[in-house]
Design a protein around this nucleic acid. Structure first.
Lengths: 215, 215
DNA sequence: CGCTACTTACTTACCTGTCAGTAACTGTGC
DNA sequence: GCACAGTTACTGACAGGTAAGTAAGTAGCG
């Protein structure tokens, strides 16, 4: 294991150093946010100066973009081999993710902080977050349509997209509540409950009785 | 309407000025976030210097706290007379709020930005946001229990609290998606759909068939 | 006159980004 | 296997900007 405090005998390779910086930046931006987290914070964690960080990434914005790309790459590698699940398996996967996330506070915080910050005016991560939502909505809507087809339930695409937005929304919203008050919210359980509820509503079809009469 | 650019004939009273500053601070913190929004930004909108703002509020933290209190006060005044709805009416109210919010981007952004930022380490608004969630969860859970009672459906308190968390989560999560991509998400419709789904799931009882078999 | 609401001017503290210099490593010719 | 040249990965110092907060002075109003 690399020791960050004592000087190492051999200088790490360029790729290694970049990864170290990316990991540190993920932690810093994740815990303090992009704006409040400084290059000095990141550099300290790697044991170099902030100028060293800039040597590798050019600017703070570029570092953020690299962090986001890095996350994408790591996420994809993690799913490598195991094809992206579709149909009902996708929802099982989402529930599992929530369960796993309950033990990965740092990652959840990073995601929530960056997502929340991205809605500020002119934030450099806005495009990335927007794209991520678009892709996710598409995948979930597709899985929903697939499940509906398998069960012979009529499902309009617009309705599938509504449900997809809701699934993503409830996952993100619960994460924020859980981060602020872990004792008050059981991330895994509440997420599973909500996804289940939305799924049931979609599969019940549009003719299902409304609980709240149209006002 | 007060004119911020040209000097006014009479100096506003202390209370008036404080309200002006609070309104300006709400806009600034709402659009840029607390950390990125500066006292100079706030002061400019009122037509004074940042030291003038500090004269009234002492520090930036105290200004934020005053903004949060201010929001609470305004929200309560807005509901004055009209008792806080309970039972099914609460959910109708939530859906109506979402519909109204679709035309109040600024307010939604302010709420989302502050909530998202609050999960960063040591954020001064964390306690306020946490408290807000706790109160909301309680109110929604109570309303759910009331509806269940009226309909003769068995509902455990824990399950009601799960559903309450989910309702809040989905509302917040959808707001973020809508802010980033208003064309992709119909805030009012998706919110109504999700609340309806969660409500239906709760009222169907725990014995209702699961869509996703326990894994 | 005396209080309040400021402004002006300043301090202190960061933060990003630049730049010149340096030490370590890498490749090459021999 | 080793000297030398070139490249890379930094450091340290600093420029330029912006932030919060303070203190002393001033203008207007009761």
């Amino acid at each position: 294991m690399a020791d960050g405090s004592t000087p190492r005998r051999t200088r790490p390779s360029k790729a290694e150093r970049r990864e170290e910086i990316l990991a540190a930046a993920t932690r810093v931006f994740g815990s303090k946010g992009y704006h409040a987290g400084s290059l000095v914070d990141v550099a300290e964690q790697v044991g170099i100066t902030h100028a060293g960080v800039l040597h590798h990434f050019g600017s703070k914005d570029k570092l953020l973009w690299a962090v986001l790309e890095y996350r994408d790459r790591v996420d994809v590698e993690h799913l490598e081999g195991q094809h992206i699940p579709g149909g009902l398996d996708l929802f099982r996967h989402l529930m599992t993710t929530a369960r796993i996330n309950a033990d990965r506070r740092g990652i959840v915080q990073a995601y929530s902080v960056l997502t929340g910050e991205s809605v500020t005016d002119g934030h450099p991560a806005a495009a990335w977050v927007t794209e991520r939502f678009t892709v996710l909505r598409g995948e979930i809507a597709t899985a929903l349509l697939q499940v509906a087809l398998e069960r012979g339930v009529a499902l309009e695409e617009a309705r599938a997209r509504s449900a997809a937005s809701a699934v993503i929304g409830v996952m993100d919203g619960l994460q924020v509540q859980w981060l602020l008050d872990p004792d008050a919210v059981d991330l895994a359980q509440e997420t599973a409950f909500a996804i289940e509820a939305i799924l049931a509503a979609v599969l019940a079809g549009p003719a299902a009785p409304r609980v709240v009469p149209a006002g």
